[in-house]
């Protein structure tokens, strides 16, 4: 249901022109408002607080749809941010939200000053860090993990971008006042884990679209008197891509199911490694079968490949998550390997 609504909406509104304008720095306000008005941005917030009251397992299709359409808004970030606020018992403001910190060794502090909370520390490459209405931060206060809500403009932002020209701004919190803050029973690196979770779904969606674009192109493009999709060399490349797409979708879907159980780190690692690998190999195949036209800005393929090349590195690249996964497996030892796999 949520998936159908989001797919219809993204199909109607996310045009190549809209993505290109967003890459020039234009905020796609109509798209955002449509997504928000259709109740898609707060799937995990309880219905009593204005959300959809859904579970993580239902969110995969939503986030994958955003990736499938390269929607240039902090949609996945808002879903995670609003969930974090709800987990901390805080109200969710309207408008786009983002999350921080997502880096490997980034930690923020929250300090009480009178009757308000202040945030200290640096968070690099925060999606729409300067333009989102609020930043939802996770940090610690005397050893307790806290969720804080910081309004746009309250924090100093240095603009940067990823390959898809999505904003990835460095935020310098310097005793920045939080609108609200509350303790939460979540680990301090929760943003990185859930960031990796949603990126894996976005990648799965983008990979699906890349396959669809590739199949369409090789069916239409003729060389040597016939569609290039008639050539076995092309067919086998796309069959290989289809395999990566299937694996990426299943890995990401499985991680969302684990998130619903609340014990997701293993599956997130699996998903980020597998979708990241599919992203790199898949983008290579898609560009090869598209030939030179796929290397132009005019063709839409790059909206997906440039995202995949960035998303696979965000919130931990394959090597990062694979190392964590490998160390955990090695620690448990060979006798526990298979029992652990089947227990998940």
């Amino acid at each position: 249901m949520l998936g159908d609504v989001s797919t219809r909406l993204f199909t109607d509104l996310v045009t190549p022109e809209l993505i290109a304008d967003a890459e020039k720095g234009e905020w796609p306000d109509a798209l955002w408002r449509a997504v928000e008005e259709n109740g898609l941005t707060l799937p995990l917030v309880p219905e009593s607080k204005g959300g959809a009251g859904a579970a993580w397992g239902n969110v995969f299709v939503l986030v994958a749809a955003a990736g499938r359409h390269a929607a240039p808004i902090p949609f996945a970030e808002t879903i995670v941010a609003s969930w974090l606020l709800s987990e901390a018992g805080l109200g969710v403001p309207e408008g786009p939200l983002t999350i921080a910190p997502g880096g490997a060794d980034e930690w923020l502090q929250l300090e009480r000053a009178g009757d308000e909370w202040r945030v200290q520390g640096t968070a690099k490459r925060v999606p729409w860090g300067a333009s989102a209405g609020h930043v939802v931060v996770v940090g610690e206060s005397n050893g307790t993990p806290m969720v804080g809500l910081v309004a746009r403009g309250a924090v100093q932002a240095a603009p940067e971008k990823n390959l898809a020209l999505e904003p990835r701004d460095t935020l310098s919190f310097d005793g920045t006042p939080a609108v609200a803050a509350a303790p939460v029973k979540l680990p301090l690196d929760v943003v990185r884990t859930y960031g990796a979770l949603v990126r894996s779904a976005q990648m799965a969606g983008a990979l699906e679209r890349m396959l669809a674009l590739s199949v369409k192109y090789v069916t239409e493009r003729k060389q040597f008197g016939r569609p290039i999709g008639n050539f076995q060399a092309i067919q086998h490349q796309l069959a290989l891509l289809a395999g990566h797409v299937a694996a990426a979708g299943t890995a990401a879907d499985t991680a969302f199911r684990a998130a619903e159980r609340g014990d997701l780190r293993y599956e997130v690692a699996v998903a980020k490694v597998r979708t990241g690998e599919a992203a790199g190999l898949g983008a290579g195949i898609a560009h090869q079968v598209h030939g030179a036209i796929g290397f132009t800005y005019e063709h839409s393929l790059h909206f997906f490949t440039r995202r995949l090349w960035s998303w696979r590195a965000e919130y931990g690249a394959e090597a990062h998550w694979a190392e964590e996964l490998g160390r955990a497996v090695a620690q448990r030892g060979p006798a526990e390997l298979w029992p652990y796999v089947t227990s998940r």
Binding site: A251, A269, V273, W321, A322, E323, R327, A330, V341
Partner: peptide
């Protein structure tokens, strides 16, 4: 394990788990 071994094992596990699903 060494870093290289851990990464290799982790990648194997990512594939193994996904193939199982």
């Amino acid at each position: 394990p060494t870093e290289r071994q851990a990464i290799a094992i982790g990648r194997v596990m990512a594939h193994l788990n996904t193939l199982r699903q």
